[in-house]
Simulated assay, not measured.
Amino acid sequence: MKKTKSTFERVMEDPKQKEAFEKEYANFLLSELLLDAMSEQNVSVRALSRASGISTSVIQNLRAMQPVNITLKTLNALLSSLGYELVARKGRHCVSLTKQSA
């Protein structure tokens, strides 16, 4: 008996559609992280903007999954303002990319 592929499985077979999905999925995850952290900490867009030095329009666009090209510096400012640490990890080796306080 032949198993029928799901719509998702069929879409993922197309390299262009798979790449588009993966790009959008990263945007979705970042948006969800911001929404959850801001909600959990009761932080408004304006308060996060003041704390991070990032404009309210950039934060609003990230939350709404609108196209935004952000730098590592911007991402770091947003995440560290919400109490997150940005790290690069390979196996057991981990390097913090978060700005350290003096």
Rank of each mutant, 00 (worst) to 15 (best):
L75F: 05
Y84R: 00
K90T: 10
T74E: 11
N61E: 09
V68Q: 13
Y25E: 15
A77K: 09
V45T: 13
R92H: 08
P15G: 08
M1R: 02
T56R: 12
L72C: 08
N27D: 15
A37V: 08
N42S: 14
M12L: 09
K16F: 12
V95K: 01
S81G: 09
Q60M: 09
Q41K: 12
S80H: 06
L78M: 09
K90C: 03
L35W: 08
E13K: 10
A88T: 10
N42T: 13
N69V: 12
Q66G: 13
A47R: 13
D14F: 03
R46F: 10
V45C: 12
E85Y: 06
I59A: 06
G91D: 05
L34R: 07
K5N: 11
R50T: 10
V11C: 11
S6Y: 01
L86I: 04
E9H: 00
L48G: 02
V68Y: 04
L86T: 11
A64I: 09
A37W: 01
N27R: 15
R10C: 11
N69W: 04
I54M: 10
K3R: 15
A26E: 13
Q100V: 12
G91C: 09
S55T: 15
R63G: 12
N27G: 09
V68N: 08
S52D: 06
E32F: 09
L29Y: 10
S96L: 00
K99L: 06
S96R: 00
S52H: 03
L30D: 03
M65Y: 01
I70C: 11
K73A: 09
R63Q: 14
S39Y: 07
V95T: 11
E24L: 14
M38F: 01
G53S: 07
K16D: 15
K3P: 03
S39P: 00
E9W: 00
N61P: 02
S55G: 14
L62K: 02
L33N: 12
Q17S: 12
F8L: 15
A77I: 05
G91A: 09
A47P: 00
